[in-house]
């Protein structure tokens, strides 16, 4: 994780420098700031700083050296459980279908939304509470 943090801080410096170069170059060649590039590159620096800063906080709270930062670690030392993923859930498919219908509604006819939005809400609630009810209630 230390390597990740360093890479993101290098990206911050790179994008910050590039923002200055891009803005100055645009000022020299067109006499005005080209806002799309300036904003996009500048916020790339913000994005990198944001992630670097958060990873630093996470790294500090781990309270030790993570396997990925040790030269003598094996690959499977840094192979944690990534999380809990339902192996058989239909809710993501249901929600994706409902959202597709909603966007079809935006494109083809707004009346479709009146059916799609309740279905999407149903899919969202179903997915969020999948492991909070029935057999899995706790």
């Amino acid at each position: 994780m230390k390597t990740n943090i360093n890479i993101f801080w290098i990206l911050v410096a790179f994008f910050a420098l590039l923002t200055a170069v891009y803005t100055t170059w645009a000022l020299i060649s067109t006499d005005r700031v080209e806002w799309v590039g300036t904003v996009a590159i500048g916020l790339c620096a913000v994005l990198s700083a944001f992630i670097a800063f958060y990873l630093q906080l996470v790294n500090r709270s781990t309270g030790g050296l993570l396997p990925e930062d040790r030269l003598d670690a094996d690959i499977d030392d840094g192979d944690p459980e990534l999380g809990h993923f339902s192996p058989w859930s239909w809710w993501p498919v249901f929600l994706a279908g409902a959202v597709s219908l909603a966007f079809l509604g935006l494109a083809a006819g707004i009346w479709i939304m009146f059916y799609a939005v309740p279905l999407a809400m149903l899919g969202l609630v179903g997915w969020v509470y999948e492991y909070y009810r029935g057999n899995f209630g706790r």
Binding site: M1, F50, I51, Y54, L55, V58, N59, S61, T62, G63, G64, L65, L66, P80, L82, G83
Partner: peptide, 14 residues
């Protein structure tokens, strides 16, 4: 030392 794994949900959200 006890090493707490990073919370994947929190890092993913960021």
């Amino acid at each position: 030392p006890t090493i707490n794994r990073p919370n994947i949900v929190a890092v993913g959200t960021i």
